[in-house]
Write a protein that binds this DNA or RNA. Structure first.
Lengths: 236, 236
DNA sequence: CGACTTAGTGTTGACCTGACCCTAACCGGG
DNA sequence: CCCGGTTAGGGTCAGGTCAACACTAAGTCG
């Protein structure tokens, strides 16, 4: 307690500076607890310190001087889920003066995790998963951040090949469509969906067998840059 | 022992921290010095200190503890141009470890300035304007930042009503088209351009007169949100 | 074999886009 | 006062995309 006060008053006159943190919104698809339909989930961490002690918050931490921003985001991801992200991208830098009692600017990343890996997630103390659309009452301005991340995810999936971030290497068109339906929250016409996707996919020639109906073909993501993705990553 | 270390949880070096700066890419349209065609320009500041002393760099400075990010960007804009921006938006947070000898994370904004106001720009010591596509050899990673800002500008103008950031309150369709042509760097069909734009414009009823040809109608930007703009600004 | 289920194809009409032609309105000079 | 020049603004048409929906293909199960 005394330390908190000391810290907040730390830079009042002389050495007042701005703290820099990196947080990550981690998305995975899991069945909705009520409807059973695939939905977007994310892990949150229960705060064990003031401010906002006891509230849920996005995983993250202060930026280490030797770490790149994306590395920092990836490390918090590994720490909270034990997984490596399939897609990692900067979301936004949040820096309102009043977003925290002490002055902190958070650079937020968002990540996608495969369903297959998602199953291997080990329970981590103080970490719990929630349906992304239903979280509220988070610490700091994290409610706004989650909402914004969802908006970006839903917008970006319509013009950029990020859905593969949720899928294994090989997948059927139905699985791919399920990802889109889960993210966008509405049904898509299988026939039209197929036509839109087929150009960006590589057929593996194999089929998924063992089901009680016609076996669907397996595809792989075709990484040829049909359109410039316009994502800027600082790993160059 | 600073309490920052206690908070980070890692007992690393003593006072090693990350500095936080806010820079702004300021775009305006001016005639190209060779072709005379309207082109994208931006102001740069000559560095008077190491590192990169004598090199050109984006205007900016350290984030003040009492300032919001966007406010900081706007202040540097006023400082370097004496103008208020017509459009101000966060671009990206650049934080590579090796982008500067000392560890600095730069949160970069980009802004648009009206041509009319651009004419009133006062000469500021150590500030000079350049054709955006032709700058190179800047300090830090600012070459990359300018290139990325241009990419974003050119992408965003195609799906978001930001062109008005370059224009006065009332304008003709030819002026609006001139903005698009300058940014995109290619000619546009006046007839098709009209059809695409006309839905998002309000006719003022007035015309621009005094020219030696048919007087063009004056329009105003229609701010009805025909589509969600998906820009997140922290001013709420 | 036949019912059922899911994979995948064809077709159609509405809409958007680019290319291009045409008319409308204003000027200035014989 | 007509006439050519210039720019504003509208019309048309071919090609592509997209949603909607009917249809065929290929498996399993009884």
């Amino acid at each position: 307690m005394t330390l908190e006060i000391d810290r907040s008053g730390h830079g009042s006159a002389t050495d007042q500076r701005v703290d820099l943190a990196v947080s990550t919104v981690i998305f995975a698809l899991r069945p909705h607890p009520v409807t059973g339909e695939p939905t977007v989930w994310l892990p949150l961490v229960r705060r064990i310190r003031e401010p906002f002690e006891g509230r849920w918050a996005l995983p993250g931490g202060p930026l280490q001087p030797h770490e790149d921003l994306a590395s920092s985001a990836q490390h918090t991801l590994e720490r909270t889920t034990g997984l490596t992200p399939n897609h990692l991208e900067q979301l936004y830098a949040f820096g309102r003066v009043d977003r925290s009692p002490d002055r902190v600017v958070s650079i937020v990343y968002w990540a996608l995790v495969r369903a297959e890996e998602d199953a291997q997630v080990l329970p981590v103390p103080n970490v719990e998963w929630f349906v992304a659309d239903e979280v509220s009452g988070l610490a700091f301005d994290h409610d706004d951040i989650v909402e914004y991340a969802l908006t970006r995810l839903r917008a970006k999936i319509t013009y950029s090949p990020i859905a593969y971030g949720f899928l294994p290497e090989e997948f059927t068109l139905a699985q791919l469509r399920e990802v889109y339906e889960a993210v966008l929250g509405r049904q898509l016409d299988p026939a039209n969906f197929r036509r839109q996707m087929i150009g960006r996919l590589q057929a593996t020639g194999r089929c998924l067998e063992g089901l009680s109906h016609r076996p669907p073909a397996l595809y792989r993501h075709d990484p040829t840059p049909s359109r410039t993705t316009l994502t800027f990553e600082e790993t160059r």
